[in-house]
Design a protein around this nucleic acid. Structure first.
Lengths: 223, 223
DNA sequence: GCTAATATAATAGTAATACTATCATAAACA
DNA sequence: TGTTTATGATAGTATTACTATTATATTAGC
């Protein structure tokens, strides 16, 4: 059986949760609970109780809730990068690659049977609902140096390079893709909760159309 | 003297802070402290101590820190709407209106002498650093009904209508402007703290160019 | 099979936070 | 003058976010 391992920087945990059974149970239950109750309401005590362990044990894996969220979100970006690489094997034009990347950002994920302790679809909903909380803090500069945002940076770089293949003169590829990725998240949230901020109907097709059109029109050379 | 009053929905406070001296001092000091220490580190106790009042008194104005943030951010959007209306008086083409709106979103604000207890420039920095925190919560649906996001919705509607004057067939004006407004905030943050996510140099010109070009290219009719 | 290291559980404790409640006092208002 | 209203002063509670200590069970090395 094909084993897949997403590597997350060791700055994002105290003890690697992927290495032990308890660690995996913490990840699995954290994802479930954070989606249910949201980041603010989640506590290490609640995670510990739910997996029939103790608060102190959870603290052995993550220094605090913020680090746990950063871990999960970096795991997501790492996993998305793997998916992108797989998909790009059979896609030849940069335009098709960007289109497919946008689809992956917005479409619900399938469960990967090789990684049973991570529910990718639920994790994706966590990213939609909580992502900006990992960088909108006063510790952002320190944490940036420690690689807290590495996964996001990489995705943004990858897509920027593809955009430059379409138009090498385009001035703002990183700004564009940080905008597109963040819009991919927030439009999903708006459709569900703040519909006046979106024109999309539920289901992801409208969001994909919006983002694809926006991306391609923006990159295209001015005549 | 010309008195200007930005009205914020009464759901966003327990007792109207604009009506008393203590209320205004709370607003003024909250803005100062939140910018200094960030939303997470700010407490009502700290505000109270700084204005030589008591925690209980601050609670008489705002039910909690979240409501205070929502109040401040709605005040900002209300104020931006007033600014936009003023500027649009002398602008005739929809294209120029959108360009000017983007400039206002990104450029540092001047202090309005008519409202000495609100430092607009500092408030703008708070919006950049904290905005998504008011809607990325489990209470978003309830709070949306109570008008917590009214100010943002209105700005988004106004800009959408202008875009439709340029191209009445454009399908996603609300999605576009919620994206643009949020990108205006996050690009300012990225330039300062996560520069790999942006191509802009410090100073706001690059961000303005990026957003203006993005907006106009996207709205334009397909030939 | 014994010893040592390691992982986890069990329990306790602390400082800070996010409130709520009560009462006193001072100002303003009718 | 009497009454409402705003604020201050003080106290108290439940929860959170940790830290520390000790006991026990498992595993690894020899």
């Amino acid at each position: 059986m094909n084993v897949l391992n997403i590597t997350v920087s060791h700055k994002l945990y105290h003890k690697n949760p992927e290495e032990t059974d308890l660690g995996k149970r913490i990840l699995s239950k954290s994802i479930e609970l954070m989606e249910q109750m949201g980041y603010e309401q989640l506590t290490f005590k609640k995670i510990a109780t739910a997996i029939e362990s103790t608060e102190a044990s959870v603290y052995r894996y993550f220094q605090n809730k913020h680090q746990l969220l950063a871990y999960l979100i970096n795991w997501y970006w790492g996993w998305l990068e793997v998916k992108l690489a797989q998909e790009f094997i059979v896609l030849n034009s940069p335009e098709n690659k960007l289109k497919r990347a946008i689809q992956l950002l917005v479409s619900p994920m399938d469960q990967d049977a090789r990684i049973p302790h991570i529910n990718e679809a639920t994790l994706q909903r966590i990213v939609v609902a909580e992502y900006p909380k990992i960088y909108l803090t006063k510790e952002v500069d320190v944490e940036n140096k420690e690689g807290y945002f590495h996964g996001y940076n990489r995705i943004c770089d990858i897509l920027s390079l593809i955009a430059l293949q379409i138009n090498p003169a385009y001035r703002f590829p990183h700004s564009l893709f940080s905008t597109i990725i963040s819009a991919a998240q927030s439009q999903q949230f708006f459709v569900k909760h703040l519909p006046r901020l979106s024109d999309a109907k539920s289901g992801c097709e409208d969001i994909i159309d919006f983002l694809t059109e926006l991306t391609l029109k923006t990159i295209k050379t001015d005549e």
